[in-house]
Structure formats: structure tokens, C-alpha cells
Design a protein around this nucleic acid. Structure first.
Lengths: 194, 194, 194, 194
DNA sequence: TAATAACCGAGACGGTACGTCAAGTCTTCGG
DNA sequence: CCGAAGACTTGACGTACCGTCTCGGTTATTA
């Protein structure tokens, strides 16, 4: 049984319960009472956990926040549907569902502010944004290979064109994007790259 | 003769000097030392002004921040250049110059977090975002009238498509947009709407 | 009408109304809402007067406070009643009536704190305390001359013995002195000095 | 063995160091620079302690001040000397020494103003004044039992007669009481009650 | 079986910023 | 020059949050 033993030092092991409870406490607080309610004390209280237990896991508030946000992305991988337009719709619809969950606008706002204020948070944040962009780049490249998408298209610029508008509507315009908006976007972007 | 009198109540009038000094102090501090350096005390000290003088003008930190950011937009009005693509480039270039000013990424991040945290800030913030979108809508409508832009295009969605990517690159991807990016965008968007 | 003109420089003369209104405003505020309610703004508002109008008359808050308290002493001069004990009762009764007016405890407390905090208030304050002591010294000296009071008695110490207990009861013990207390005091002091 | 356990709740216990340092900081500041120098920030700095640590122990400035003053009384208990006059001198001399310590006048002034301004300070202040009066009452009652003091004397009034003059001289007359004054007082009071 | 080490909740701690309030000065207008 | 109104500086107030530390006590691994 030694070969499956999880590597572990001496002493009492960390309780998994704590990690999960803290992350959902952050998400709940953001959704219910807004960014300013996400106090370390509030998180600890809500999670039924002590502050040191939190700081043992994340070095600071920003990192915790990003970790909590990360649980909300859900790595969608779009299968080859044989058609760029269809795959684009799949990506946008998946994002639409994610962004329409309660509190997402606040979550993104917190993420942005965390990434700007905290000096040591870049790594975690980069991981987050990269994950957002990657699926789009994949379908674009697949489209180019297939011939759906023009050869000259700059993949990175196009990916930004896909990812940006929905976040913009949510965070800057402060409105919940809807089906209609996703459809309009798909139409515009499909024309842009073909 | 009374009709040209500047409306003014009794008592000592507010000094314009103060308002201006405070707003630039905010912008300077953001650019030089980042969001977390924008302390009310720091702003007051930098502006050579007292804290109460600030709170007389803005109810809280968030409102002040948004007011400061508002001075950075500069209402560009693009003249009719006879061609949608040219006007689009003009808009994107203007924005590019504005966003490449030092500290703009931090400013926008602060703006977003302020708009999300503060309960009584919506008004000022709405004014801000509206101003960003309006010029784009104008050139789109002009293009539709002219025939450059196809009739079926949803103006609002298209305007979002113009405004979003550059802010996204700056604030989410945390990279300074460049000429090349602006050109790519113009090409993509022009194709999208024509 | 020129011959009755009070000597006066150029410009608008001071309105007597203001001085009186300010002094009573201080007394009213102390009596009704306590020491901490005596704000210069509150005084100005209550008196229907502007702050500069107050500062033209008194150099600072402490001086104003002492001036207001001074209006509450009322220079009693006890006539020769032929008997020290009777005159002592007259003095104590007069003081009793003054101290039982509403807000006197607070007034005295403010006076003490003003005299301790303000560096330039000593003069006005000395005038105040001197006035309190003088009548007692007079009846003591009259008693000595008359033979009611022992010759060896130190007048100043005895005067303190008369003045102190009632203020002590009011300000330190925080209780309203009554007839009974005045009578007990008179008895004790009369024995002490005869 | 549980019965000797010091009662202590969970969590990090308060550091006694803090409490002591704060109280002496208050006394030092009063003695050295006067009442107006007793700022919460100054106290915190002087004590090498943070402001919140102070507010955890005392609800406000007034309460802190009174607590600090309380450490200056020192419960003297006069032993039975067989003679009222001697015990009276002992009490007055003890008080004289206490009042001649530097800054005591300011301390008492602050105490009085604190007790009058603060709404929730009565308890602590009552404890303070009671302690001042009690020793005097004891020697009076002992004197009555012994026959030194006449039976009809109202103990409370007489106790006030003992406690009041020295504080009066210090705080109202603003003069340091001396040996001579104590002797005069003892003589007068002894005659008053016998 | 005992020792040891890391965990846990609770909560005090230093530091820093917040937004407010009062004192006293200054500036504008009008009388 | 006086007066009302009110903006201004200065500086203290009391509160909130962050991240750390210190308790008493618990749970696992190692000796």
C-alpha cells in the first residue's frame, strides 16, 4: 500500500473541507453582497474557518480571490463540428452561460482590481486569462486549416475580438449579455474572419 | 442686466484651483505609484489641499476616482471623412493614443472596481461609459446612411465590438495595444460590418 | 443728535444684539445638551449669528466660555447682619441658588477644562475665581473685627473652606447640593472659625 | 485542580504590557505637555501600541482618561492612631503628596471634563470619587466611636469638607497646596467636628 | 506509547486608510 | 467696517480591514 501513499510530511494533514468551504464562501459573498463584502473575516466566518487556516493556503486576499474565480471558468473544449460558425456559437454560448451566473460581473471586477493591485499575483492571473483565450484560438486555427477562416487573419487579434465584447458588456456597460447579443456577435465575427 | 449674472449663492465660493488640483493628483498618483497609492491623504497632500475640501466635492473615494477618470476621455468627434474605414481608423487611433498614456490600465482597473463597489456611483460611471460608446455609434450610423455599412447591422453590438478589444487587451491581457493591433482590428471590424 | 454720539470709528458699528445672543446661546446649549454640544458652529447657529462675528468679540472658544460663565455669578454683596453665622448662611444660600440652576455643573466643568487647556485664558479665569472668593473673605474679616471669628484664623484657608465643598459636591460628587447640605456646612464652618 | 485555573476564553490573550504602557503614556503626556497633548494617536505612539489595541480596552478617550487617573489614587488606609487630629493630618498629608505630583492639576481637570462630557463614563468615575471619600469617612466614624468627634456631625458633609478644599486650591485656584495649607485645614476641620 | 509536528478555532496585535467633526481663518457679497 | 454665509486648513476622532502572531487544543506521523 506504500506505493499509493500520498506524499505527506509529519503532523496533522490539512482538511480538504476548509479549502472548499473558503472558495465557495468567497463566491457566495461576492454574489450576495458585492465586492466590498469580501472581507477576510467575513470569508472566514462564512466558511466556518479561522483566518490563519486561510492564510496557510493562499498568501493573500488577491490570490484567494483569483483562486475562487478560477473555479468558475470550466474548461470547455469545443469538438470539431465541421463548421467554424457553429463552433464559434458554441464558444459564445458557453461563455454566455458562465457570465450569466449571478455575481459574475462583480467577480470579474474583483479579479481585475486584484490583478492590478497585487504585485505577486501575475502568475495566477495569467493562468486565468490564458485559459479564457485558448479555446477560441483553437477553433480559429482549426477554421484556418479547414478553409472556413481566411489565411491572413491574425489569430491573436481575432481571439481578442471574440473574448472581449461579452466581458465588456458585462463589466463596462454593466448589463447582462443575452442570446440576442451572442447571435449578433457570432454573425459579426464570422464575417470578420471569413 | 440680471440675466447675465453668474448664479452664485451667498458665502465664499469654491476655489476652482482645488477641484483641478485634486483631479490631477489622483491621475498622477495612479500613473506613478499604482492604484494602492491613491489614498485620500496622499491625494490631499499631493494636491496641496485638505481632506474635507475633497469630501465637500465628492461623497467618497470611488466618486472622486471616476471623476478623475472622466477627465481622461476627451470627447473626440470624428468628422465625416467620406469613408467608414477611415473614420474607424480615426476612432481606434484616438483611443490607442489615450490608452497608451502612462497609468491608463491602472486607471481603468480602478474605475471598474469603483463602479462595482460603490453603491452611489452609477450615475457618474454611466456618463463615463456612454461617452466612450457614442462616437463609435455615430460613425456606424453615418456609414449605414452612406452605404458603407450594411443595413442589417445591430449598431449597439457593433459599437461594443469596436470599444471592447482595446480595453480588453489593456486591462485583461495586461498588454499595451500597439499600431499593429489597431490596424488588425480595423480590418476585422470593417469586414464584419460591410 | 451729535452730542450723544458714542465715540466710534468708521464703518458699520457692532450690534449689541450679537454679544448677548451669543452668551445666552452658550448657556442654553450647555444646559440642554451638555458640554460637547457647545460647538462654535452650534453657538453661531443658535444665536442666529455668524462665526466671524463671534471671533471678533472673543479670541477663542475658551474665552467665550468663561465670559458666558461670568454672567452667572451675580455679584452678591452681603450686608452687615451683625452676626457671622447669619452672613455665612447668606453667602452659602446665594451660592446654593446659583449652583442649583440647570446646567451649572457642566458649566463649571467646562470652565475648569478651559482654564487648563487654554494658555491665554488665565486672566479672564482669574477674574472669575477671584470674584467667587472675595465675598467670603469680606465677611470673614468683618467677623474678625467684630469678634465673631477667632483672630488666628487664616482668612484665605477659611475662604477656601467655604467655597470648596459646594462646588465639590456639584462637580466631583455630581450631586445637586440642597438646603440640608448648606445648613450642615454653615454649622461646621462656623464652629471651625470661632 | 480546576478550581485554581485562571479563567480565560479562547483566542490570543490580551497582553498586559499594552494596558500598562497605555495608562502610563496618558499620565506622562498629561504631565509633560498638558491635556491637549493627550491625543489617541500620541498615546498610541508613546505606548508603542496601535490605536485599535487601545479601543479594544476602553470604549473611548474619556474612559481611558479616567482609568489612567484611577491608577494615581493609591488606596491609603490610615491605621488607628488613637487620635482624630493625627489621623486627619495623615489623610491630608497623603493627599498633599499625591496632589503635588507633577501634572495632577491637569489630570483632575481632564477627569472632570471627561466625566461631564462622556455619557457612558459614570460608572468608572463614580468608582474614582467614592475611593477618594471613603478613607475620610472611616476616620470620622472611628472618631465618633472614640469620642474625638461629636455625635451630631453629618459624616458625609464633613467628609466633603475634608476632600474639597485641597482639590479646590489645586484645580480652581490653580495653586499648588503646601504644608502650611494642610496644617491650617487640619486645624479648622478638627475644630469643626469636635 | 510517547513525542513531535502541523493543523485547527479564536481572537488580540501593529499598521494603515477611511470618512467625519470641530476650531479658527479667509473670502465673497451686501448693508 | 460690520455682518451672514460658507469654503478653507489643520488635526484629532473612532472604525474597518489586512496580514501576523499567540494561545489552547486536536490529529496524524514518527520514534
Amino acid at each position: 500500500m506504500a506505493e499509493v501513499r500520498v506524499e505527506r510530511g509529519p503532523g496533522r494533514p490539512r482538511q480538504e473541507r476548509v479549502t472548499g468551504a473558503v472558495l465557495s464562501a468567497v463566491l457566495d459573498l461576492v454574489a450576495e453582497h458585492g465586492l466590498s463584502a469580501v472581507t477576510m473575516d467575513a470569508v472566514a466566518a462564512r466558511a466556518g474557518v479561522s483566518k490563519p487556516a486561510i492564510y496557510r493556503r493562499w498568501p493573500g486576499k488577491h490570490d484567494l480571490f483569483i483562486a475562487a474565480a478560477e473555479t468558475r471558468i470550466g474548461t470547455l473544449s469545443v469538438p470539431d463540428l465541421g463548421d467554424f460558425r457553429a463552433e464559434l456559437r458554441a464558444v459564445l454560448d458557453a461563455r454566455l452561460r458562465a457570465y450569466r451566473m449571478p455575481g459574475t460581473a462583480r467577480l470579474l471586477a474583483g479579479l481585475i482590481s486584484a490583478s492590478e493591485e497585487g504585485g505577486d499575483v501575475r502568475g495566477a492571473y495569467q493562468r486565468y486569462t490564458t485559459r479564457i483565450m485558448s479555446e477560441t484560438r483553437k477553433i480559429l486555427e482549426r477554421g484556418i486549416a479547414r478553409g472556413d477562416v481566411r489565411t491572413g487573419v491574425d489569430v491573436r487579434a481575432a481571439a481578442t475580438l471574440v473574448a472581449a465584447p461579452m466581458i465588456f458588456r458585462l463589466v463596462i456597460e454593466q448589463e447582462l449579455p443575452d442570446e440576442r447579443f451572442a447571435a449578433d456577435l457570432a454573425e459579426l465575427i464570422a464575417r470578420a474572419v471569413s
